[in-house]
């Protein structure tokens, strides 16, 4: 006698991952693009995050807020990519040359200055403690304190304190490296 055991993937988890992808993929890509400064690289990282999630849908099963989980994983992946200076610098240089080729002559200076400011901000972010950088990025990307607390695994009343410290550290490092210019 043969017993056939059918293993069925829980439909709820599949749906949760798909819903997360549909609702948050564009925003995750935008967040990652802000971190790494390269749209294509952001798309790649976001694809990796959702790919891992789809392979292990149970990872979000025990999580109270799957959205926060995805933001945390994506932010960590983006910061890791940002710290790989060699690749990032090469891509930025290539992207900068390409932008200058496309820009009108009158916009060229503004484009270069904006790209320079972005590179400065990213360099300071990369030099922060991972938790500080993640906190600043999640907050600036629109997460409420409650979502930040869940994403980072910290107590809700601590978010204000940690955010204030992270901002102080960011300001101190930015001014130390680049002075008062914004």
């Amino acid at each position: 006698m043969t017993v056939v055991i059918e293993v069925v993937q829980p439909a709820l988890e599949e749906t949760a991952v798909e819903a997360l992808y549909r609702e948050h993929h564009p925003r995750i890509v935008a967040l990652l693009a802000r971190i790494v400064g390269d749209r294509q690289q952001a798309e790649d990282i976001a694809a990796d995050v959702f790919c891992k999630l789809s392979q292990r849908p149970a990872a979000i099963g025990g999580c109270d807020n799957p959205t926060a989980w995805v933001y945390r994983v994506a932010t960590n992946a983006g910061l890791d990519a940002l710290r790989k200076h060699g690749r990032r610098r090469l891509r930025e240089e290539q992207a900068g040359v390409e932008i200058l080729r496309r820009a009108a002559p009158s916009d060229a200076l503004q484009t270069v200055l904006a790209a320079e400011r972005q590179a400065c901000v990213r360099a300071v972010l990369a030099g922060l403690k991972p938790r500080d950088a993640q906190l600043l990025l999640l907050r600036s990307s629109g997460l409420a304190y409650r979502e930040i607390a869940q994403a980072m695994g910290i107590a809700l009343p601590s978010v204000g304190t940690l955010l204030a410290r992270a901002e102080a550290e960011f300001e101190r490092k930015y001014r130390a490296r680049y002075g008062d210019a914004i």
């Binding site: 802000r34 959205t67 400011r117 629109g142 409420a144």
Partner: peptide, 21 residues
């Protein structure tokens, strides 16, 4: 906030998750 705003792409973050901020 102004420095992080230099990174751009905020327009695409204006969905449900961004509304709180």
């Amino acid at each position: 906030s102004s420095l992080l705003g230099e990174l751009g792409e905020l327009g695409e973050l204006s969905g449900a998750g961004a509304s709180a901020c």
